[in-house]
């Protein structure tokens, strides 16, 4: 803008006095403002524009930027990044190791459970075996006892039968002798001749039908 002003300055002077007057007033005001900041004065005319376009500071900025970048790059590539990547891979390793250890413990727990199950099954089988053996023994004893009791009962029944038979035989005999005696007495009372054999045959004949 200032260059433009300088070019047009003669024309402005020709046109009117007031324009140059205001211009000088502005310049004075600007001078006061520039005294405010030291850099303003240092840059002279260039401070009117954007500080970004002040070419006189470019070399300075670029130089220090390169220095700073070089320092950061050196520190990062030598110290910081290897350290962080080391820490991250360490952590990864630790996590993987822990996971594997956990897997191992899980496997161990599973094995222990399997062993426990096996022991339990064994114990159960053993118990079943013992129960079966006991049952068999008891059964045997029971069978023997039953057989013994059966034999005893059979013996007693036989004995009783024999005695019943004896009693019955004796009763038949008694009946027969009573019948013979009665027959004999009857025959005698009727005045008949007593033939023992005949009477016996007759009584037997009659009894055979009655007793059996």
């Amino acid at each position: 803008m200032f260059s433009l002003l300088q070019q047009t300055a003669p024309v402005v002077v020709e046109h009117s006095e007031t324009v140059t007057h205001t211009e000088t007033a502005q310049a004075a005001a600007h001078g006061a403002d520039a005294a405010h900041a030291a850099a303003d004065a240092a840059h002279g005319a260039s401070n009117a524009g954007m500080p970004q376009l002040d070419i006189s500071t470019f070399g300075n900025q670029i130089f220090w930027l390169l220095v700073v970048l070089a320092v950061i790059y050196w520190v990062l590539s030598r110290v910081a990044l290897p350290r962080i990547s080391g820490v991250i891979s360490d952590r990864q390793g630790a996590i993987t190791g822990d996971l594997m250890a956990a897997e191992e413990f899980k496997q161990k727990a599973k094995d222990a459970e399997a062993a426990y199950d096996k022991a339990l099954a064994d114990a159960r089988a053993e118990a079943n075996k013992i129960i079966a053996a006991n049952k068999a023994e008891i059964q045997k004893e029971l069978d023997a006892a039953i057989a013994h009791a059966d034999a005893e009962i059979a013996a007693r029944a036989g004995e009783s039968e024999k005695r019943i038979g004896e009693i019955r035989a004796s009763a038949v005999e008694d009946a027969r002798s009573v019948a013979r005696d009665v027959t004999e007495a009857l025959v005698q009372s009727f005045g008949g001749n007593v033939d023992q054999n005949l009477i016996n045959d007759a009584v037997d004949q009659r009894l055979k039908g009655a007793l059996q």
Partner: peptide, 10 residues
Amino acid sequence: MENLGQLGQY
């Protein structure tokens, strides 16, 4: 003229 230049700028 100065004002004209400013006008253009703005």
